[in-house]
Amino acid sequence: MIEVENLKVNYGGIEAVKGISFSVPQGDIVTLIGANGAGKSTTLRTIAGLVKAKSGSIRFMGEEILGKDTVDIVSRGITLVPEGRRLFPDLTVMENIKIGAYLRKDKLDDDIEWIFDLFPRLKERHWQLAGTLSGGEQQMLAVARALMSRPKLMMMDEPSLGLAPLIVKGIFRIIQEINQRGVTILLIEQNANMALRIADMGYVMETGAITLQGPGKELLVNDEVRQAYLGS
């Protein structure tokens, strides 16, 4: 579905991404894991058109999207759940959900119902300002907002960041549920353990380059990965 080839990105005066290549097949969950500053977020942000690349290619459904405007990229069916949720805190929960469907012109009722099935907490709080939600609820809302665009590819940047382990489990269960409904997922995580468990393919990034790759289950038992990221 998406093929990244030899992508190089300069960010803040350094070469943050040094010519990486990977692909996300349709219907899969693919994860990029790695430490802080490895260039994972920059990669996602480049795909979303928020950061300009130096060179390389990003093809989505066979078409080159590198250098295209964010609104154009999003309208092709890519969405991003940004790092730190980035909700609109002074919009209500309901408005945050609706704004996710900004580009759609059709009825939203069924989607909203599905979202509320997925996240009953959001239904209870639909009238509250998003800024008043707890961390876990905010993450749910960020995912809900992204789903409202009916994405083909959902990119998620550290969805587990700052959340209690139990809530992280819930979020990952929902990621799988979303994936089963046909949404392809590109997931960035520092929580390598959880991410690799649900991923079809995993890529390990270190200082801007991919150093290891393989099916999630294999990386989970790989000695290097275990030492560096799983703490055992």
């Binding site: 979303a48 058109g49 928020l50 964010t70 609104v71 999003v74 309208s75 969405t79 991003l80 940004p82 980035r86 609109f88 805190p89 002074d90 919009l91 704004i99 996710g100 900004y102 580009l103 907002r145 665009s149």
Partner: peptide
């Protein structure tokens, strides 16, 4: 509130 996220919303 947030140009960048607004763009991601389309």
């Amino acid at each position: 509130r947030d140009f960048e996220t607004a763009k991601v919303m389309g």
